[in-house]
Amino acid sequence: MHSNHLLLEEPIRMASILESSKSTFFPAMSRIVGTLGINSQSVETISACLKAGMSVARFDFSWGDAEFHQKTLENLKIAIKSTKKLCAVMLDTVGPELQVVNKSERPVSLQEETLVVLTPDQDKEATSNLLPINFSGLSKVVTKGDTIFIGQYLFTGSETTSVWLEVTEVNGEEVVCLIKNSATLSGPLYTLHVSQIRIDLPTLTDKDKEVISTWGVRNNIDFLSLSYTRHAEDVRHAREFLSKLGDLNQTQIFAKIENVEGLNHFDEILQEADGIILSRGNLGIDLPPEKVFLFQKAAVYKCNMAGKPAVVTRVVDSMTDNLRPTRAEATDVANAILDGSDAILLGAETLRGLYPVETISIVGKICAEVTPFSYCCKEI
């Protein structure tokens, strides 16, 4: 008997997988946005990041003061001159972000199955059973059974550095929660996210306006990343504010979609914005994990059809502490580009990660490897 051979059209030769990576005729068509900060502030490190493939530097004002970010930007300018690599500047707003404030900066250990109280009294010290927050209205919007998530800088999801809470009681302005997993919170600020609850704060806060009109104008920023964009009106308001500043009327606004409210108004937001950032860290809290990929694929497709850049975040979280990404992460980067993403945004990995340069380099290599293959896919 003759065995039946299944003939497959090969979009890429299997043998090429074993070839060493090298610069090809196809340059990487996607861009890498690197967040500069604690572990990526020196001229030497920034220069290496530029050489590795970073073409947009992101300055996240959720932490650090204007003086710190100005020092980083001055170092970026020196690095640009020495490397002769162009790099745009993106200012990332804080927006209506809820934060746990730890003035002492001492690590706070939280024990599973114990209670912790969230209080709007920021004068109190953060302890294992009391966490001060920057929002007095939390008790008005949560009810018993609601889920609250607390983590350091855009949620790593690590069970040791982030914590799930379940609301058990609302007592005046204080919210009592049951701790669902043991964790240690370290540093002065942690982000707090309440799943699928609308926070009644302006998207462009007074603090954001002050930073944009001072630091942003002084440095003639190229992009404004509008955190927690929930409606098209948020983008229109931001654009109106920029136009009044004069110097920033050419600044592009990238709407950051971070919750269900932004997802529900995605089409209108896309019409108004210059680009979209899919903030998968926060979306992964608001949406069930199995739904995040559906939104990503739909949103990237819509951005492609509208001719507007789509930026994907949270791709190589493990490289915050490790020299290599997981296989799943490497594949995730490639699939994001194959789906039509125009840029990869690196947050904690380059901000406070141990290997900012290596992270940019590896993500860049994956993007370059994908580029010719994406052309093949489009032709088939």
Rank of each mutant, 00 (worst) to 15 (best):
H2Y: 10
L6E: 14
L7P: 14
P11C: 04
S23E: 14
A28E: 11
I32D: 03
T35H: 09
A52W: 06
M54D: 06
V56N: 00
Q70H: 09
Q70K: 15
L76G: 04
T83L: 01
L86V: 10
T93V: 00
V101T: 10
V108D: 05
E113F: 03
L115F: 10
D121V: 03
A126T: 04
L130P: 04
S136K: 10
G137C: 07
V141P: 13
T143P: 05
D146R: 01
T147I: 15
F149L: 09
I150D: 09
Y153P: 08
S158K: 11
T160N: 12
W164A: 02
E169W: 00
E174F: 03
V175W: 05
V176R: 05
S182Q: 02
Y190Q: 10
P202L: 00
P202C: 01
K207L: 03
D208A: 02
E210V: 02
I212V: 09
S213W: 05
N220D: 13
F223G: 06
L226H: 11
H231P: 06
A238D: 12
E240C: 03
E240G: 06
F254A: 01
A255N: 11
I257G: 01
E258P: 04
E261F: 06
I269H: 12
L270K: 03
Q271A: 07
E272Q: 08
I277E: 10
N304R: 15
T313Y: 05
L323P: 12
L323D: 13
L338S: 06
G353T: 02
I362V: 05
